[in-house]
C-alpha cells in the first residue's frame, strides 16, 4: 500500500474538535453573552468553543505535515453489545424489574465476546442477577422494584 503523507488519525481528531467547537459555539449564541462586567450564561461557553475550534485547527494543520499510523482495529462487535447494554437496562428496569433487567443486561453484554458460549452466558447472567438482588436490593436496600409490572 502507498505510504500516506499525512496522519489520518489526527486529521479526524482535528476535524472532530472543530465540529464540536462549532456546535457548542452555535449553542452558546442562543443565550445571552453579557458584558465584561456581567458575563452572561453564553460568554464562557462561546470563548471555550472558539478555543476548541482553534485547537482543532492546530491539530488538523499539523496532521497534514506528518506521517502517522492509521486508526487501527475497531471493536465493532463490542460497540454494539457493550454500549447497548446500559440502554437495555434503562428500557427494562421499570417494566421487568431489577432482577430481570440485570439478567438481560448481563446476557446481552456477554455476546460482545466471541469466546463466550450461550450456556455459560445464561449461567453467568442468572448468577449475577441472583447476586445483585441479594447484595443491592436486599443488602443495601436500593429502592427498586424487584419484579416489574410486565411479569405480573
Amino acid at each position: 500500500m502507498k505510504q500516506a503523507t499525512f496522519d489520518p488519525t489526527n486529521i479526524i481528531c482535528g476535524a472532530f474538535f472543530i465540529l464540536v467547537g462549532a456546535v457548542f459555539a452555535w449553542q452558546s449564541l442562543e443565550v445571552e453573552l453579557g458584558s465584561w462586567l456581567r458575563i452572561g450564561p453564553g460568554g464562557m461557553p462561546l470563548a471555550l468553543s472558539l478555543l476548541l475550534i482553534l485547537l482543532g485547527l492546530i491539530i488538523l494543520l499539523a496532521a497534514l505535515r506528518e506521517v502517522g499510523e492509521p486508526v487501527g482495529a475497531i471493536a465493532w462487535r463490542g460497540i454494539v453489545f457493550i454500549t447497548l447494554a446500559p440502554i437495555i437496562f434503562g428500557f427494562t428496569v421499570r417494566g421487568l424489574g431489577f432482577v430481570g433487567a440485570v439478567f438481560i443486561t448481563a446476557l446481552f453484554a456477554s455476546f460482545a465476546s466471541l469466546r463466550m458460549t450461550p450456556l455459560r452466558a445464561l449461567l453467568l447472567s442468572a448468577a449475577l442477577a441472583a447476586f445483585s438482588t441479594a447484595v443491592f436490593s436486599y443488602g443495601l436496600g436500593l429502592p427498586f422494584e424487584r419484579i416489574g409490572p410486565w411479569l405480573r
Binding site: 437496562f89 460482545a112 463466550m116
Partner: peptide
Amino acid sequence: FPIIMAFCSI
C-alpha cells in the same frame, strides 16, 4: 465484562 456492565448500569 458482563459483570462490569451489570454493575455499571445498577
